[in-house]
Each structure stands twice: as C-alpha cells, then as structure tokens.
Computed example of a mutant assay.
Amino acid sequence: MSAPLRLVAAMSGGVDSAVAAARAVDAGHDVTGVHLALSRNPRSYRSGARGCCSIEDSSDARRAADVLGIPFWVWDMSEEFADEVVDDFVAEYAAGRTPNPCLRCNEKIKFAAVLDRALALGFDGVVTGHYAQLREGPDGLELHRAVDAGKDQSYVLGVLTAEQLAHSHFPLGGSVKTDVRAEAERRGLQVAHKPDSHDICFVADGDNAGWLADKLGRRPGTIVDEDGTVLREHDGAYAFTIGQRRGLRLGVPADDGKPRFVLDIEPVSGTVTVGPREHLAVGALRAVRPLWCGEPPADELDCTVQLRAHGSEHRARVRPVDGPVDGAVADAVEVDLLDPAEGIAPGQAVVVYDGTRVVGSATITTTESARADRAGTR
C-alpha cells in the first residue's frame, strides 16, 4: 500500500463526490472535504436537476462530510469563477463562439485555483468524483476513459496537464453509476438518490439565451439562407449555436420542405445563416492553445477525437503546427476528420484520444466543410 496522503476532496454536494471522498478515506488518506462556493448569489434550491452551486448543495456536502467523519471547509471562489468562467462564457458567445464552461471550470478553478491553494496549504492533491481513470504508462501517468462509458468525463478533463494529473485522484473511474449510488446508500449518505446536475451551473433555469440577453442586451441581426435571402430578424446572435434546429421560428418552409439548421454565425453583423442538415458536415478543423496530458505528439497522430462532452468519437489525423492566430503566433493543431462530424462550432474543444488514453485538447477556431463543392471554412 502506498503511503497515506493529505488530500482535499472537492465535494459538490452530489453523490459522486461524496463517494469519492469516502473511498479516499477508506484508502487510509487524511481527507478534508472542501465545498467550492462559486456563486455570488447562490439560490437556496436548484431548479429541477440543474446547477451545482446552491445553498442546498453546500448543506448536502457538509452532511456527507459529517457522515464520513472528516473536516469540512467552504472555499469562496466566486470571484475567480466569475472572472475565469462566467465572464469568459459571455465574451465567447458575444464573439460568435460556443464555449464549454465545464472545461473552463476544470482548467481554471477545480484543477488550477483549488489545486494551487491545496498545495500551498500542505496538501498532496485533490480528489474529485469525476468518472475517469489514471494509469501508469511507459512515459508516466496517463488519463484514460472511465469504465462506465455513459458517465465518462475524460472529455472535460482533457484540459489537465501532466503536473495537474500527478496531484489528482479519481476513485470512481473503475465504477458504474448504479454501483456508486448503491454504495452511497449503504454508507448512509443522504445524497444517494439525489439527481445528477445538468446544464450550466450558473444558469439556474437552463435558459441560456435569456440569461445571455440579460448580460449582453439586444443586438439585432438577421437570419438568412445560404443565398443571402433574409428570412427574419432576431434580437441577438448569441441565442443561436451551430447545428441548432429548434427555436429558429422561420415561418416560411424551405423549398424542399426539410428542416433548416444554423450553419454559421457572424457576430459583427449579427448574421445567422441557415441551411439543410447535410451542409453541417465538417471534414477538418483547426484548433489553438493545445494542452497536452503528457508529452505532445511530435508528428502526425492517427487517433480519435471527441468534439462535445457526450458526443461520439471520430477517427482522425492530428498534426501539431505553429501559425498565425488572431494576429499572433501560437501553437495549434490541424485535424482531418476521417468520420465527418455535424454541428461543430468555433469555441468548442477537440479532445484527442489514443485508444482510451487522453492525449490532450485544444480550442476550435475554424472548421472546414466536408462537402466536395464547398471547401470553405466557418
């Protein structure tokens, strides 16, 4: 058995983080539960199964720590969360991109600010309830997919560096969710059957467009077809995402009678372009600010990529490159998708896999259509 460690258990108030903390205690580690207060104005109760930053969640985390017999602290990280996650989310949508705030939170809050504070206080690492696995590989520690494919969260952990992984612990990676709930019940944890949180934690009612409208105000523009014909006006391009079908309210049907989807968003003019589903197919993309979970690939890599949190894997070839990005020189990757993907937008993350191992991630800046008659980018 390895030597006991002093660990911070990030306890969200849900079943997964509670059982993860319990398993760390069972392994003989000196565990302190920490709940992150991320909201400046936390709601007393969540709306349905949304959110993870309410007063109710903090109380649930405290009760779980009491059952486990471990110290419990609350760390106020609302300022860091607002600056690094919420403000970034608003700015990305204003720029016509589609961010993933969970990746941003993992990168900047849970495995940067929290880990930095924990190490500064003399702890050895952080335990979380993420479904992912850490394994020793030939070149060091590796991040792998979880056993429970339906709960796998390796995608949102693809932003972690080798140094951060060295101080991370994911006790649930080898378990399935039903077993975790059953274990919580056996341990007497009241959160055993608490619903999982979904959607964006700081948008309590799940109405992203309404929330963004409050932040960004009315920014009128038009919805057009691929020929430039204006179909209607709108109050803000931030209410739309690439691949969106519902809520377009176009009125006049397409000539072929088929549904139309958002193909492109131009944030300066506020123009939203729509067209048929087959025109969503992406065959290649470019992404910047790569973060590698170990040594970066030296050459082209035959691999798979995942393009959204619960999306499918796509066979791909990934090439690390250097090149101009937004007027500056920055590291980047170019990705050829052997299996075209739909609804891929700038701002999303591409996470690279070698089998079950996470190689790294990057932020998508441009995509290239898979259509033979349209090799342009968006």
Rank of each mutant, 00 (worst) to 15 (best):
residue 172 L to A: 13
residue 138 P to F: 00
residue 173 G to F: 09
residue 133 Q to F: 00
residue 160 L to R: 05
residue 168 S to M: 07
residue 162 A to N: 06
residue 160 L to Q: 07
residue 164 Q to K: 14
residue 145 R to I: 05
residue 157 L to D: 04
residue 122 G to R: 05
residue 119 L to P: 02
residue 124 D to N: 09
residue 126 V to L: 06
residue 158 G to A: 06
residue 126 V to W: 03
residue 158 G to N: 04
residue 161 T to E: 10
residue 121 L to I: 00
residue 139 D to H: 14
residue 161 T to F: 01
residue 136 E to F: 00
residue 143 L to Y: 03
residue 140 G to N: 05
residue 144 H to S: 10
residue 125 G to P: 03
residue 121 L to A: 08
residue 139 D to R: 15
residue 151 K to E: 14
residue 162 A to R: 14
residue 149 A to P: 06
residue 141 L to Y: 06
residue 142 E to M: 13
residue 168 S to Y: 11
residue 150 G to F: 04
residue 123 F to Q: 06
residue 149 A to S: 15
residue 131 Y to R: 03
residue 133 Q to V: 14
residue 147 V to M: 10
residue 135 R to W: 04
residue 151 K to V: 07
residue 137 G to T: 06
residue 143 L to S: 01
residue 120 A to H: 08
residue 155 Y to W: 15
residue 160 L to I: 05
residue 131 Y to H: 07
residue 127 V to L: 02
residue 134 L to Q: 08
residue 128 T to D: 01
residue 142 E to D: 11
residue 121 L to W: 04
residue 127 V to H: 00
residue 119 L to A: 05
residue 121 L to G: 00
residue 172 L to M: 13
residue 145 R to N: 07
residue 149 A to K: 14
residue 149 A to C: 09
residue 168 S to Q: 10
residue 151 K to Y: 07
residue 130 H to Q: 11
residue 139 D to W: 07
residue 163 E to A: 15
residue 126 V to S: 02
residue 135 R to H: 12
residue 172 L to T: 12
residue 153 Q to E: 15
residue 173 G to P: 09
residue 143 L to V: 05
residue 171 P to R: 11
residue 163 E to D: 15
residue 143 L to A: 06
residue 135 R to K: 11
residue 159 V to A: 06
residue 119 L to Q: 08
residue 164 Q to F: 02
residue 164 Q to H: 12
residue 158 G to V: 02
residue 165 L to W: 02
residue 172 L to F: 13
residue 163 E to S: 14
residue 151 K to M: 15
residue 165 L to P: 01
residue 125 G to N: 05
residue 131 Y to L: 04
residue 141 L to F: 09
residue 169 H to K: 10
residue 122 G to K: 05
residue 159 V to W: 03
residue 166 A to L: 03
residue 167 H to P: 00
residue 167 H to E: 00
residue 141 L to M: 09
residue 150 G to I: 07
residue 124 D to R: 02
residue 166 A to R: 10
residue 169 H to P: 05
residue 119 L to H: 01
residue 126 V to F: 07
residue 142 E to P: 06
residue 134 L to S: 04
residue 161 T to G: 15
residue 146 A to C: 03
residue 121 L to N: 08
residue 135 R to G: 00
residue 144 H to G: 10
residue 146 A to I: 01
residue 145 R to L: 09
residue 149 A to W: 10
residue 133 Q to T: 14
residue 162 A to D: 11
residue 171 P to F: 13
residue 148 D to G: 12
residue 152 D to Y: 03
residue 172 L to E: 13
residue 119 L to E: 07
residue 129 G to Y: 08
residue 148 D to Y: 09
residue 160 L to N: 02
residue 153 Q to N: 10
residue 128 T to R: 01
residue 169 H to C: 12
residue 162 A to P: 06
residue 168 S to F: 11
residue 124 D to M: 00
residue 144 H to F: 14
residue 150 G to S: 11
residue 152 D to F: 00
residue 158 G to F: 05
residue 172 L to V: 12
residue 171 P to Y: 14
residue 172 L to K: 14
residue 156 V to Y: 03
residue 123 F to C: 08
residue 154 S to A: 15
residue 144 H to R: 15
residue 148 D to F: 09
residue 147 V to N: 07
residue 154 S to K: 08
residue 137 G to E: 04
residue 161 T to Y: 02
residue 159 V to M: 09
residue 145 R to P: 02
residue 172 L to S: 13
residue 131 Y to F: 12
residue 143 L to C: 05
residue 139 D to E: 15
residue 143 L to K: 08
residue 136 E to A: 11
residue 156 V to M: 11
